[in-house]
Structure formats: C-alpha cells, structure tokens
Design a protein around this nucleic acid. Structure first.
Length: 196
DNA sequence: CCATTGATCCCCT
DNA sequence: GGGGATCAATGGG
C-alpha cells in the first residue's frame, strides 16, 4: 500500500500538483481509479471558473486545498476537481480520466452495464459518474482518499481540452502511452493553434 | 458532424 | 429581478 497524500501536497501551485497526481489513486463510494489525465486551473487563468472571482458555485475552489470541487455543465454532466494552492488561491486540478482499478462493478452500475472497462472513467464526466459524484459531493474532503502511485509514470504535457480561452496553455498532463487517457479534442470554437 | 440540457453568470433595467 | 449567452462533455450518426 503506497502513501496517502497529505493536505500539504495539494497546498501548492496547481500546475505543479497536476503532473504529480498522474499514477495516483483516488477512492470514493466504493470505486478506486488510477489517475491518467488531469488539467490545471488557476485564478489568473481566463479558462478557470475562479477567474472572475468567488461565486456561490466556485466557493470550494477558494477554500483550503485537498477538497473536491464538483460542478455541473452542459446541462447533464458533472466534473470533479481537487482544490490546490493556499486557501483563497482559487486553484484546482480537473480529473480528466482514469483507470478503474477497484470497484469495477460499482462503476459499471453507475455508468451502464454495457460500458467497456476502458470507457468507465475515460473522460471527466465519465470519471465523475463512475465515482458517484454530483453537486452533493462538492466540498468533500479528499485528504485520506488519494494515494501516491507505485512508481512515477512518464508524463506528457499539452494544451487543455474543451475550453475556448487560453486553449494553448500546456496545462493538460497525461500518462504517455496509456489506454485510459481520453481522446484529445480541441474545442470547436477555440482559435486554431499557431502554425509551426 | 450534431443535438442534448439546464445551472450559472453577466449585464442590463 | 430578468433575459440571453455560455459551458473543464458525451453519445450517437
């Protein structure tokens, strides 16, 4: 059994925490996932929910590190973040994808009986659904639920997904050559990447 | 490619 | 207090 990550681990810059979360495991509601893909968000970041300051929805992001920030989007999906940085920093790491390593039956019960193992948590809303998270889990303390990985994986970095602003900031991190990373899709309305 | 879906937030009155 | 745009996505063609 590997080490639990303490609150100090999360209480740093989200861009530093994000890649270190790869390969770690997160456990909730009878399901454990090995994290394969994340994105960092910060208050000084136009794509962050915290960019325009604290609101009722984003209050948890401005609280102490190590707590879960769950939001609802596209009228049908939940996504989950781990709050990072100093209290009041408004930073977090979005959990984008993972491999269900324990509780496959529970995850499949939430995601659907016909869902392939690979797709149980491959995508931020899929991961949140597999973990059984919704707005009632907003603010849950995740210290004690996140463990270091057995070994440090090979990490790649690139632009974030699904956003229209700051789409070229390389704050998306994923494990190289891992089947449980979500397929990359730039937001259709994001400006095209600069030509090489 | 495209529809789905509704909470949230901005910016006015 | 209200109208309208937006949205860290998914699933099905």
């Amino acid at each position: 059994m590997s080490a639990l990550l303490d609150r100090a681990f999360f209480a740093r810059d989200s861009v530093a925490v994000a890649p270190e979360l790869l390969g770690c495991t997160v456990t909730a509601n009878g399901v454990t996932v090995r994290v394969t893909e994340v994105e960092a968000y910060r208050e000084d970041d136009p794509a962050s929910h915290s960019f325009r300051g604290r609101t009722d929805r984003t209050a948890v992001m401005f609280g102490p590190a190590g707590f879960l920030y769950v939001y609802f989007t596209y009228g049908m999906h939940y996504c989950a973040n781990l709050v990072c940085g100093a209290t009041g920093a408004g930073a977090a790491v979005l959990l984008r994808a993972g491999e269900v390593v324990d509780g496959v039956e529970a995850a499949r019960g939430r995601r659907g009986e016909r869902v392939a193992d690979r797709d149980l948590a491959r995508g931020p809303a899929r991961l949140a659904q597999a973990m059984g998270w919704d707005r009632s889990d907003d603010g849950a303390d995740m210290v004690g639920a996140v463990r270091a990985g057995v070994e440090a994986p090979a990490v790649l970095a690139g632009p974030r997904t699904g956003i229209t602003k700051a789409a070229d900031t390389a704050w998306r991190f994923w494990i190289a050559n891992d089947r449980f990373v979500s397929p990359y899709k730039r937001h259709p309305k994001a400006p095209a990447a600069e030509a090489e």
